[in-house]
Simulated scan of single mutants.
Amino acid sequence: MAKINLRPWREELRAEKQKQFVTMLLGAAIVAAGLAFLWKTDMDNRIAYQESRNDYIEAASRKLDSQIKEIEELRKRREELLARMEVIQDLQGKRPVIVRVFDELVRTLPDGLFYTDLTKEEGRLTIAGMAESNSRISSLMRNFESSDWFSNPNLTSVAAAESGRDGYSDFNMSVSQTTPEPEEESDQ
């Protein structure tokens, strides 16, 4: 006899395929959700790692900024100290010069003449004094001309003394202060 299948096999096959499709769709959705979760977790970890690196860089940057400020303050203090040292060295260097200038003022001073006022402005000395005679003033000017420390004496005024000293003349003059070149020592 012939075998005839009266069962609805097509509907069963369709139901079976639909069940497989739903299972595969559900499986794909679970795998996609798992991949999405892994991707999100990886991105969160990367973001957290980058934020920690950014925090480290910001902390290092703040530390460097404070060090830069400290370095600038140290540089400023160094410049101030160098300026002070330069002033001190300049004063130390000029100290023997002023002593030498006063010594030379005494050496050029002839008898019968004395100074009443000395003023120095920018390498020029203004001298006021009293002299017994005009020849003493001329002698002082010649002494200044022959001096290594002074040059260009300029007599501005000579007048009879007002202080009651008979025979004395008040005078005002100016003279340029020069610093002689140090003498080279010869090898003997």
Rank of each mutant, 00 (worst) to 15 (best):
M85H: 12
R84W: 14
T156V: 10
D166P: 01
Y115R: 12
D187K: 10
E12V: 09
R75W: 01
Q89E: 14
Q92L: 14
V99K: 15
L13G: 07
F102H: 11
E11A: 01
A2I: 14
N54T: 08
E183D: 02
S147D: 10
A83W: 05
N143F: 00
V87D: 13
L6A: 06
F102V: 06
E183V: 00
Q92E: 13
N134P: 03
T156W: 08
I30A: 15
L25S: 13
N172F: 07
A128M: 04
N143V: 02
S186N: 04
N134E: 11
I4L: 11
V87R: 12
R165P: 02
K69E: 15
S61Q: 05
Q177C: 09
D44A: 13
S146I: 05
V106E: 12
E132L: 09
L25W: 12
R95L: 08
M85S: 11
G93H: 09
S61L: 14
L118R: 02
S163Y: 01
I88H: 07
N45V: 01
S66H: 06
G27E: 15
E104I: 03
Y115D: 06
F144Y: 15
A83T: 05
Y56K: 11
A60Q: 15
S138F: 09
E58V: 08
S135Q: 01
A15M: 06
R84D: 14
L118A: 10
S151Q: 14
A159R: 12
M141N: 05
V87M: 07
D44P: 02
E79L: 10
E86P: 06
L155Q: 08
A2M: 10
L64Y: 09
E70Q: 02
N45P: 02
K19V: 01
Y49K: 15
L13A: 13
P180E: 08
D44H: 07
W39A: 15
T126P: 00
R75M: 09
G129M: 00
L6E: 06
K94P: 03
P110C: 04
Q67G: 06
R53C: 08
I68C: 10
E73K: 03
D117V: 00
M85L: 12
Q92T: 12
S151T: 14
S52E: 13
D65A: 12
K19W: 00
K19Y: 03
Q89Y: 12
K3C: 13
L140V: 07
A161S: 15
M173T: 08
N154G: 00
E16I: 00
I71M: 15
R10C: 04
E86W: 09
Y115S: 11
E104T: 07
R124E: 08
F144R: 11
S138V: 09
K94G: 09
D42R: 10
L82F: 07
N134G: 09
G112K: 02
E80P: 02
E184F: 05
R136D: 04
R107V: 04
V101L: 15
G27P: 01
S133G: 10
E72C: 04
F21E: 04
M24G: 06
R142P: 00
R165G: 05
R14H: 03
L118C: 04
E181F: 14
G27K: 15
D166W: 01
L13N: 05
A128D: 09
G93R: 13
L25Y: 08
